[in-house]
Computed example of a mutant assay.
Amino acid sequence: MNVIYPLAVPKGRKLRCEVCEAPAERMCTACTVTYYCGVVHQRADWGSIHEKICQLLIPLRTTMPFYNSEEERQHGLQQLQQRQKHLIEFCYTVAQKYIFEGKYEEAVPAALHSLRFRMNMHGLSSVELVPAYLLLSEASLGLGRIIQAEEYLSQAQWTVLKSTDCSHATHSLLHRNLGLLYMAKENYEEARYHLANDIYFASSAFGTEDVRTSGGYFQLANVFQTLNKLDVADTLYTKVADIWHKYLNNHYQTLLQSRLQQIDLLGKQVENDTGLDEAQEAEAIQILTSILNFQEVTSNKAPGKTVFVLKTLAMLHFLMMNYSKAEEYALKAFNLAREQLSVQEQDDIEELLNLVSAEESHPP
């Protein structure tokens, strides 16, 4: 982390902490455009997001240079807007990834950055602010701060109600977070209502079999598991695993076909790719690992379900080029399949295991 020192506040200028908006006493000496109330919030922001975006903030928070023509000025404004768009999405993705990894404290500063950039670009009442409010609500729930989560959710709800062009995807996110809130409050009837709405809006936006819809099914399964309705939970978890398996298997099969040709059209070796951003990869790991834990406890009489999730996790980590984890899951799947499943199923998993082992032995 960069060296920090007390800030000499310019006369007449009110500076606010990046994290809590209290009067600032410190400055980041690397960018000199970011301020903090004290060392605790500076370190929290640095560890969460600031280290990644420190230098990107300078052109956004300094006076625009003098331009010789209106054309140059418009070009400069367009570049600033592109930087803001990039930072909105980047900070949002980083905060999402932290949440899926259970790192709720780290998620808060990144989500706050995304919210402020959205406010600067879209105004204080735009529906574009809603995803950031929902991230802050989810992080607050993870930290056990239910009242604060409710405040963020209320702001998100009010913004959606005032909007005339709110997308199905945003409605889905809102209902999912309301479902999570009511789960935390142990009001499972309300949780089920909102999660059913989440699935409806996500299905309208993306389709019933899309990985972006699977999160609603997963959270609804968690409700039924909590209520000890394990058969219903198992049905929903199985559907989620099917969605992720189909998605990852499509990428896996495409990769296998490409590697049969050894090279792509540019003459370069084909690299693994999940087609997901870092937050979606973290979500996939969280969801599939949770389902695996459930299946290992409840599916002693149906080991095929456990093998299926293990294989899906192996494909995910293989496509992420995390070969040690991929081999771990593939080996578990193969050993269990060898004891319980058909020869064809064993062969499919052995093919994946051999491919993973080869990659781990001879990385590109």
Rank of each mutant, 00 (worst) to 15 (best):
Ile291Arg: 03
Ile349Leu: 07
Val223Ile: 12
Thr32Gln: 09
Ser342Ala: 02
Leu355Lys: 01
Lys229Val: 07
Glu339Met: 01
Ile349Pro: 09
Gln219Ile: 00
Thr62Cys: 05
Lys11Cys: 09
Ser167Ala: 11
Ser69Tyr: 02
Met27Cys: 09
Ser125Leu: 03
Ala111Gly: 10
Ile88Gln: 09
Gln286Pro: 12
Pro6Ser: 01
Ser126Cys: 05
Leu288Trp: 06
Val211Ile: 04
Arg338Pro: 02
His245Val: 01
Asn300Cys: 11
Lys162Trp: 12
Phe218Gln: 05
Ser126Asn: 13
Met27Gln: 13
His317Arg: 02
Tyr323Ile: 06
Val160Ser: 00
Asn2Met: 08
Glu281Cys: 14
His50Asn: 10
Cys166His: 05
His251Val: 02
Cys20Val: 07
Tyr98His: 08
Ala279Asp: 10
Leu230Tyr: 13
Cys31Leu: 05
Ala314Gly: 00
Leu141Glu: 15
Asp234Gln: 14
Glu106Gln: 15
Leu136Trp: 15
Gln253Val: 12
Leu56Lys: 10
Leu173Arg: 14
Lys103Pro: 03
Lys305His: 11
Asn2Pro: 08
Met1Lys: 12
Leu265Glu: 15
Ser163Lys: 04
Asp264Phe: 11
Glu339Lys: 14
Pro6Asn: 01
His171Arg: 15
Tyr237Pro: 01
Pro23Asn: 04
Leu129Lys: 00
Asn293Leu: 01
Asn68Phe: 03
Asn249Arg: 05
Leu56Ile: 06
Leu135Phe: 15
Leu353Glu: 05
Asp198Phe: 13
Asn228Glu: 14
Ala169Arg: 11
Met27Ala: 07
Gln286His: 12
Tyr329Thr: 05
Gln55Lys: 13
Gly47Asp: 13
Phe206Val: 00
Lys268His: 10
Gln257Phe: 15
Lys229Leu: 07
Glu350Ile: 09
Gln253Pro: 10
Leu266Trp: 10
Arg43Asn: 06
Gly38Tyr: 15
Asn222Gly: 00
Thr93Gln: 15
Ile291Met: 00
Tyr237Ile: 09
Gln42His: 12
Arg259Leu: 10
His245Ile: 02
Cys37Met: 05
Arg145Thr: 08
His41Val: 07
Ala191Phe: 11
Thr274Gln: 04
Gly179Ile: 13
Ser290His: 04
Leu236Asp: 07
Ala22Ile: 06
Leu134Ala: 05
Gln257Ile: 13
Leu248Ala: 00
Leu87Glu: 10
Leu161Phe: 13
Arg73Glu: 03
Asn335Gln: 03
Arg26Asn: 13
Thr312His: 00
Lys332Gly: 02
Gly275Asn: 09
Tyr67Gly: 00
Ser172Ile: 02
Trp158Leu: 15
Glu328Phe: 11
Ser167Gly: 07
Glu71Gln: 01
Glu327Thr: 07
Pro65Asp: 08
Ile53Tyr: 12
Phe318Val: 07
Thr306Ala: 00
Thr32Gly: 02
Ile146Cys: 00
Met183Tyr: 04
Thr29Tyr: 03
Val40Cys: 14
Gln257Gly: 08
Gln262Tyr: 08
Cys91Tyr: 08
Gln55Glu: 12
Arg338Met: 10
Ala30Asn: 08
His245Phe: 01
Thr62Gly: 01
Pro131Arg: 06
Thr298Asp: 05
Gly47Tyr: 15
Thr254Cys: 11
Gln96Pro: 06
